[in-house]
Structures are given as structure tokens and as C-alpha cells.
Design a protein around this nucleic acid. Structure first.
Lengths: 200, 200
DNA sequence: CCATAACGGAACGTTCCGTTTCGTTGATAT
DNA sequence: ATATCAACGAAACGGAACGTTCCGTTATGG
């Protein structure tokens, strides 16, 4: 008789001469879980591979490196945090910031984001991808808040970049120091300054 | 006959039953050099050890881990970038920011700082040290600029934290994305906003 | 029906961590 | 004078992770 249950019951074998989307999904889910439970320190390809019940070659068949996987984990998690401008930039920024921080705190995404930024400091390719692809995509909406305000004449158009940098940096500071909870009190004042009408 | 030049000529041997400050200096210099030439990616204890001509145990005799070494490298490099308040917060901030960015660009310190922030994302001890010791020390001066402005009544005292966070984040954003050069143009506008007089 | 390619698993060689062991060195205490 | 002691550089350790390469299995598509 053939070996009883020679293969583990839930094994996700080949589906033929093409990549199995179930593997991709399982790997993404495993990466999420590892980041949620272990943080960036425990996030290793081996750990994800083990957890997903997938071989490492399968991971590298879908993503070219760790940073690439991290970015897709983040993108996949990012629920539809949309930001549509009203007529009050400060109010829009406060609302978006609260939603973003809740997203960072309530999902593994905060940790994913921190891992991403850390990875970009040691991997030039990751930094380039972050700067030229990831950030522009992620910041499209919030940039829209500023350009809309500039279009209304509420802020000078030539200050959009500076104000956007202030906004991004503010968020990064709190997430990178793991002080999102304690920093919430600073949000309204900070957003009021960032959204301040053109002075003088 | 005994082996001619059995020991390398420049070897830095023991100086007796006490730690050799020359070793510490050599290690710090080597760490600087590695960071300058290889960046965070090439910064390994092994590389520093090789470059310094020092044994790894000697490194760990002086510093308890990589993050600890990184922080001392940064502290050792940090020339006296002092910030003494005048009567104009915006002007003080612009001046300090220009000096800081020049320091980050003109020395390995920018890379050291990025390495430090990255290290803190995977090492909880490093994050705690960053938050509770490194940052308060490094930010004492710039915090002084804000409290002085608050004392003058130029900004509300209860907004010091929010404005400081805006300031720190602004710098972090540009250094972490390696955009210090391109971002200089944003400094004046950003500092004007951060230093804006209490609204209304 | 057979070539193809992705699958999970295992092992590869490399790199790095932080630690241990070793023989050597030289200031200090006896 | 000499024994003690701790730090020194070098080398090697065990463990972990990287990214890659094989392997036998699987099932599709030509």
C-alpha cells in the first residue's frame, strides 16, 4: 500500500506549468502575520516561508527581494484610506491623520511601514523604489489635499512641497519612534500650522 | 630561529591589565570610515573589526551592541552644532537646519543617523535608547529654541511639542529619503510655518 | 501524451551576529 | 624580581538569515 498521507493534507502543490495565486496569497498573509506578531526583527524570508508553507524559491518567484515583498504587504493591507478635499485643509489633514494612525495602530501596517523605511536605509534599490514608486502612489491623495487648497488660494502653490514634507515628516517621526499613541494630542496644532493660510 | 616579524609591525597589542583607549579610537574611526564608504549596508561589526585591526571582543568590551556603537559614532562626529536662540525663531530654525544638513552631507553623519534610525526599527533596545537618551540629548538645543520663543510669547507654550515634532519630522523625511540636497529649497517656507506666531 | 514550469522541501555557500577560547602583552601588586 | 591580572588580536564557534540551486512531484497546455 502507498504511504498513508505521505504528503501533508493541506499541502499546496503545483497546479501545473503556471504560478499558483494561492501561493502568493498565502505568502502575503504569512508575511502580514509574522510582522504583526514579531515585528521587523522577526521578519525573515525563512519565517515567512515556514509560516506560509511555501518554499523560498516560490517567494522569490513572485517578489525580487524582501523590500519588494514588504511594499506589497503594505499595499495589500492599505484599506481604502481615501482623502477627498473639502474646503478646509486643516480639517482634511486632521481627519486623514487620525485615519492613518488608526490604520497604523490597528493593523500590522505600522510595523510594515517601519520595516519598509528601515529596509530602504540598507538597500539602495529599496530606497529608489520607495522614493520613485511607493511614496508617490501612497501620497497621491494627501498631495491632492494640498493642491486643492492651493487651487482655492488658501495656501501658496509654491509652498506645497514644503508643507507636504512637513506633513509626511510629522507622521514619520511618530511612527518611527513608536509614539503614535502619545502623539495624538499634537495632531490638531500641527495640522493647523501646516495648513496655515499664506502669511502676511 | 624565531619567525621573523611574527607579529605585524603595527599591531596594537595589550597595554596591560586595562582597556586600551587607542583601540576604542581605532574602532570609532573604522566605524566612521566604513559608514562613509559603504553606508549602512556595509556596516558590520566584522567589517569594523577588520578595518580597525581590532578583535570583535574588543568592540564588545567597549560597546554592548551595534546600536550602541552607532550612537557613539554619531555623538563623536557631531561637531559643536550649537543653537542659541536669538529673538527670531524662524531665523534660528533656518540657520540650525542649514548647519545640520551641511553636517549630515559633509560628514558620514547623515549615513550614521540613517543607520541609527534603521537599527532602532529592528532592535527594541535601540529604539528605547534612541527615544529616551539619544534624541533628548541631541534635541536639547533645538528644543531650547522653541521654549525660548514660547517664553517670549511668540508661540504658545502648549504647542512646543507639536512644533518640535514638525521640525524633527521635516529633517527626518529628507535625510531618510536621501533628498537633503534637493530639499533645501523647502527649508525657509517650512521653518516659517513651524515658527508662525500663535494664530488668531 | 509529453514537454513545461511552478510547487514544497532540502540543502547549498555566504554573511553576520555575539560569544568563547587561546596565547601574548605589559602595568601593577607583592 | 616576579606573579597576577585583565585587555589585546586572532580564530573559531553556534545560530540565524540571506538568496540560490537542486530535487522529485504535480498538473496544465501544446
Amino acid at each position: 500500500m502507498k504511504a498513508v498521507k505521505a504528503t501533508t493534507p493541506m499541502r499546496r502543490a503545483s497546479i501545473g506549468a503556471r504560478r499558483n495565486p494561492a501561493s502568493q496569497a498565502a505568502i502575503l498573509a504569512a508575511a502580514r502575520a509574522v510582522l504583526a506578531e514579531e515585528g521587523y526583527a522577526g521578519f525573515s524570508i525563512d519565517a515567512v516561508s515556514r509560516r506560509a508553507g511555501a518554499g523560498k524559491p516560490t517567494i522569490y518567484r513572485w517578489w525580487k527581494n524582501r523590500a519588494d515583498l514588504l511594499m506589497e504587504v503594505y499595499a495589500a493591507e492599505k484599506a481604502g484610506i481615501r482623502a477627498v478635499p473639502t474646503d478646509d485643509l486643516a480639517r482634511d489633514l486632521v481627519a486623514h491623520t487620525m485615519a492613518l494612525w488608526a490604520f497604523w495602530c490597528g493593523t500590522p501596517s505600522g510595523r510594515t511601514f517601519r520595516a519598509l523605511l528601515a529596509e530602504a536605509q540598507s538597500d539602495p534599490d529599496a530606497l529608489a523604489a520607495l522614493r520613485e514608486k511607493f511614496l508617490p502612489e501612497r501620497l497621491r491623495d494627501v498631495r491632492g489635499l494640498f493642491t486643492a487648497a492651493a487651487a482655492r488660494g488658501d495656501i501658496p502653490a509654491e509652498e506645497v512641497e514644503a508643507r507636504l514634507a512637513l506633513y509626511i515628516g510629522f507622521n514619520w517621526f511618530y511612527v518611527l519612534t513608536d509614539q503614535l499613541e502619545a502623539g495624538q494630542a499634537s495632531i490638531p496644532a500641527a495640522m493647523r500650522l501646516i495648513a496655515a493660510p499664506t502669511p502676511r
